[in-house]
């Protein structure tokens, strides 16, 4: 362990790891809602693969978070026994699925961001973070390949698919800005070279997104407005419902093993 890592206060690192783990946890929940309901079997299977990757990443990020916290909480305890205000995920990932195009647009916006982020995290001074990033980056690269292809195809496809994809992009755009917002946690993490400043990811993300939207014949919304709050525990109403569903058994039968 390098001196830099020690410089990050445990609680800061814990909070930052929760952000990573809660993003993948909540998004995996949303994506898994599609299982059995996708437009065609091949997509059903592909979405499940994405959700499975995200669950695996959650186990790694929240597992490490619990380790850093040092209070004996494992990934399951963190996923199943915290209330909404303790969740640190981006608002983007808790947005309801909407139609398939909406889901794939949300996935694409996230995948583009996650790819840029994970590639930077591979160089983290914390080797535990770098290890997880190394593994997750391969999965994320495939997710991006797929969501990008789908956004392009549906954006360009028919009049109807184009209109639906544009509507999805417009609706989700308010939730883009939060991905690039820096706060004290981010600055402490960046100072220790554990992870990049979110604002530093924007250019690379813009590059991916602009090229994709261009190919998809979609128009990038002309707005900088950003809904924020997820990273500090102020969520949309949707998260409460997600947790009510996800945590039901653990809450109804405390202490049982499954």
């Amino acid at each position: 362990m390098t001196a830099n890592v020690m410089a990050v206060e445990g609680n800061t690192l814990f909070n930052w790891l929760l952000r990573l783990g809660d993003n993948t946890l909540v998004l995996s929940h949303r994506v898994s809602e599609w299982c059995g309901h996708a437009p065609v079997l091949e997509e059903d299977i592909a979405l499940a693969n994405t959700a499975l990757d995200l669950i695996g990443q959650t186990q790694m990020w929240l597992g490490l978070a619990g380790e850093v916290e040092g209070k004996g909480r494992d990934a399951d305890a963190l996923a199943y026994l915290r209330d909404a205000w303790d969740f640190r995920n981006l608002l983007l990932v808790e947005r309801p699925n909407g139609d398939f195009g909406h889901t794939m647009m949300r996935q694409f916006l996230f995948d583009a961001w996650q790819n840029v982020l994970l590639n930077r995290l591979k160089d983290s001074t914390d080797p535990r973070v770098a290890d997880i990033a190394e593994k997750a980056a391969k999965e994320a690269a495939y997710h991006l390949d797929r969501s990008r292809g789908t956004v392009i195809a549906l954006g360009d496809g028919t009049e109807e698919s184009h209109a639906r994809m544009q509507a999805a992009l417009d609706a989700l755009w308010d939730y883009v800005g939060e991905m690039f917002l820096d706060d004290d946690v981010d600055r402490a993490i960046a100072d220790a070279d554990v992870g990049p400043l979110p604002s530093s990811l924007r250019d690379a993300w813009d590059g991916i997104v602009n090229a994709t939207l261009n190919e998809a014949t979609l128009t990038r919304p002309d707005s900088d407005f950003a809904q924020t709050g997820g990273k500090t525990g102020r969520h949309t109403e949707d998260l409460g419902y997600i947790l009510a569903e996800m945590q039901f058994l653990q809450r109804a039968y405390p202490g049982a093993t499954w």
């Binding site: 996708a38 437009p39 065609v40 997509e43 398939f100 195009g101 789908t150 195809a153 549906l154 496809g157 028919t158 109807e160 698919s161 184009h162 639906r164």
Partner: peptide
């Protein structure tokens, strides 16, 4: 899903 299959 019809619009998705048609769009793709």
């Amino acid at each position: 899903g019809a619009w998705v299959r048609e769009g793709m």
